[in-house]
Amino acid sequence: MRKLSTLFMVLSLVCFAVPAFAQGGEATGPVNWVAIAAGFSMAIASAVCGLAQGRATAAAAEALGRNPAARAGIQFALILGLVLIESLALYTLAIIFLKVK
């Protein structure tokens, strides 16, 4: 698992590094702020949804460890929570596609 997280961190660094070393060209027109804002909003939404899913899963694991008899209820609440959190990221993606087309 640690190797996998290291791989993802290196990949994200590489993704940031490639545009940073790109040669700067002459300005060709106005900056497309909508596209930049869309990228940032998607990144923020993904990060917050990932954090929320992680916290929900951690809380469910803790609850299962404390009270294994309540497994059915915890499972149900976790599934609903994960689906609703995932749909928030999808809402952002849908709004971005509507605005940046």
Binding site: A60, A61, L64, G65, P68, I74, Q75, I79, L82, V83
Partner: peptide, 18 residues
């Protein structure tokens, strides 16, 4: 949704170790 249910079920199995 179906896969999410399976994942959560397996996760719960692993957490409770049944």
């Amino acid at each position: 949704f179906h896969w999410l249910k399976r994942i959560v079920h397996r996760f719960a199995e692993r957490a409770t170790e049944t």
